[in-house]
Amino acid sequence: MTAILRHEFRLNLKSLLIWALSVGGMGFLCILMYTSMEGEVADMADMFSNMGAFSDAFGMSTLSIATLSGFFATEVGTVHGLGSAMFAAIMATVLLSKEEDAHTGEFLYSLPVSRSRIVIAKGLALLLHLIAFTLICGALYVLGFAALKEDVPWDGFLTLMGRMLFMNLEISAIAILISACSAKNRIGLGLGLSLMFYAYDLIGRVIPDMKDYLFLGPFAAANASEILSGKDEPAKALITAAVISLAALVSAFMIYTQKDLAS
């Protein structure tokens, strides 16, 4: 199993580095942009925080965009949320199906390892990738704060990165279920799914009637503005995410270990 885990980790290392450095790099640049935009942002901050539902949707009503924390939550929170969700969805949607899609399955499955062990090894490799992605991006954001000689709001920052990871895990679990059901890579479906979840969260924050159902989406507990302002109440969303993730993973495991493998 270790050999498969190592193999799977190495196979996707390039994608991990490209995605982590791109998303983390964008976040890093956003942080650096803060000083050059500080004056202009301060002028716009009042206007941004009084745009009603739109301000709520982007968290600008809870944290002032004129502060680095507020700017970080609004800009980097969005970039990292969307970027990491897309990365998680892409990696997980092809996690199992890629062997059948690329016809490498007959080679892999002819080796003396049970399918359940293969699924576990692949799942663990994905988990390590997501953790590495979060660490690389997190390190780049800390570098951004250091470059501006500003203190990192550690409590909020670590909570945010942890919640983002948790959100990525839920999206991955759902995408793994898609992967288990399919003999073809469905990257488009995975990407669409992550964008749909993001849109669901955004709409849920704009439309008052939908606020009660916001906890159902993976992004609910990973809102940067709420976390950094200490105004989040994540329990319901986290429990829901855990239940959905577990159900998706168990279903994926059952389906994949029982199904006929396409040639």
Binding site: L11, K14, A102, H103, T104, E106, F107, S263
Partner: peptide, 12 residues
Amino acid sequence: YMPSEAMFYPSM
């Protein structure tokens, strides 16, 4: 086992 399609991981 040698399958009819000899397919492996292209980047390896």
